[in-house]
């Protein structure tokens, strides 16, 4: 250690550093705590006031409105539809990603030549902006630029005229496609880590017991993978429920309000129509809803770390 050279300076700083040492642990966490307080907790508190007043760029002043902002959101059919859409889109997306991600992880868990190169390629989407991913699919699917219909037509031998982004249910399908493209690798890489961590001797034991591969999968792999799977699903559910970017780029919520998600609806209320009071009220309700859903997921997440 390069200290102790200058005894005088050391004595001078002794008092200061002993104070620092005593409060060391609190000093270390304080910047993080202060930042989080300042930029999420305080704004959310401020938002409570906003949610109860008129805060609208079409209407001057901030008159007290009581729960009217909340009422307006709850009675807005578009808002209710957006919540339902968010719920099932998120569920569907996570389910698709889980299944494909798991199969891919199973296919990739045993080594083969080129595996070392394939894995980084599979992970590419995780490092891209969702805007860019949404745009990929806009380029592929939107008529008349996208080649998708032509390709499908060439494969099936008949004319295909699917309006991928402007017709229900295809618009949902397109969104799921974009989401799956970006996030299946997430499931894959986590499940791959989980699979790799299962000790080989368990399989040998199962083999000795005469278990068929399918039995080995259901009685060895799956139970051991389950905690990891839960973590992956939890993170994906939390993020999928916030889906915004892909909608913004791909469908703009259309056709009609069919692909409005909670985040997109609130964004429109807040930043395209500038009903900030209503948007804030909606955002609070959405956050509470999401917290309730995520609560047990997060509790679950904490466990492996405490262990």
């Amino acid at each position: 250690m390069a200290l102790g050279a200058d005894a005088t300076r050391r004595r001078l700083s002794q008092t200061a550093s002993s104070w620092v040492d005593r409060h060391f642990r609190w000093l270390l966490v304080s910047p993080a705590v202060v930042l989080i307080l300042a930029l999420t907790i305080f704004p959310l508190g401020y938002a409570i006031w906003v949610a109860f007043v008129t805060y609208d760029f079409n209407i001057p002043g901030h008159a007290w409105r009581g729960i009217d902002n909340f009422k307006e959101v709850v009675t807005d059919p578009n808002a209710r539809k957006a919540i339902a859409t968010t719920a099932w889109l998120a569920t569907a997306a996570v389910a698709i990603e889980l299944v494909i991600g798991l199969l891919l992880a199973l296919a990739m868990v045993r080594p083969f030549r080129g595996r070392r190169w394939l894995i980084p390629i599979f992970l590419l989407p995780l490092f891209m902006s969702p805007v860019i991913v949404g745009q990929f699919w806009a380029l592929l699917l939107t008529e008349p630029f996208g080649p998708t219909n032509w390709l499908l037509g060439a494969i099936s031998g008949s004319d295909v005229n699917i309006r991928w982004t402007t017709q229900t249910p295809w618009a949902y399908f397109s969104i799921l496609l974009a989401d799956a493209w970006q996030w299946t690798p997430f499931m894959f890489v986590i499940l791959l880590a989980g699979l790799s961590a299962i000790p080989d001797d368990l399989y040998s034991a199962a083999d000795l017991d005469g278990a068929r591969p399918r039995q080995a999968f259901f009685f060895v792999t799956l139970p051991l993978l389950l905690p990891v799977m839960l973590v992956a699903v939890a993170f994906r559910v939390i993020d999928a429920a916030k889906i915004f970017d892909v909608i913004y780029v791909l469908t703009k919520g259309g056709p009609g309000t069919d692909t409005y998600t909670a985040s997109y609806y609130l964004y429109e209320q807040g930043f395209q129509l500038f009903h900030l009071g209503r948007g804030t009220a909606g955002a609070w309700m959405f956050m509470i809803l999401l917290s309730v859903v995520s609560y047990w997921l997060v509790r679950r997440l904490l466990k492996p770390v405490e262990a």
Partner: peptide, 10 residues
């Protein structure tokens, strides 16, 4: 867990 949309308005 915090949805960004909830924070970004305030």
């Amino acid at each position: 867990i915090m949805p960004p949309i909830a924070v970004v308005i305030p």
